[in-house]
């Protein structure tokens, strides 16, 4: 039987296979890295901490305005996109994509993955 961490890793690996996705990571809501599939040499811990803060700040900002919790945060730059979404109460899921990646399929797969993570944790 696979351990939880192996199952989580599989969720991340599957996401990474979606066209245009460069890296995928799972972090706790309070910013600890759980697992990342990303090119070596990048500091996954910092990436996880910052993404958690970003999503948390976005959630605080919109709920303060009475707009409920946002589905996701998307950051676009010339060099790529970063998408962060909640995956249950304990974790969040973050993807990095190429600049030209289409978001349709990616968001669909990401929501599915987030649901799986929610069940696993």
């Amino acid at each position: 039987m696979d351990s939880t961490i192996e199952l989580l890793e599989k969720v991340l690996t599957d996401l990474k296979k979606v066209g245009g996705v460069e890296a995928s990571a799972l972090a706790s809501r309070d910013g600890l890295l759980i697992k990342a599939i990303m090119p070596s040499g990048q500091h996954a811990e910092t990436f996880a901490a910052m993404s958690a803060t970003m999503l948390g700040a976005a959630e605080t900002a919109t709920t303060e305005l009475g707009k409920r919790i946002p589905e996701r945060v998307i950051v676009e730059s010339d060099h790529g996109k970063l998408i962060a979404t909640g995956a249950g109460p304990k974790a969040l899921l973050v993807l990095l994509t190429t600049p030209e990646a289409g978001l349709g399929l990616i968001l669909l797969e990401m929501d599915k993955a987030a649901q799986n993570v929610k069940e696993l944790l």
Binding site: S28, R29, D30, G31, E45, A49, A52, T53, G56, T60
Partner: peptide, 20 residues
């Protein structure tokens, strides 16, 4: 790994969030 919080009161929600 070291996490540093902001200091001002207006950022208290963030402090709570990252201190877990």
């Amino acid at each position: 790994d070291i996490f540093g919080t902001p200091g001002q009161e207006r950022f208290d929600p963030i402090i709570k969030m990252i201190s877990g």
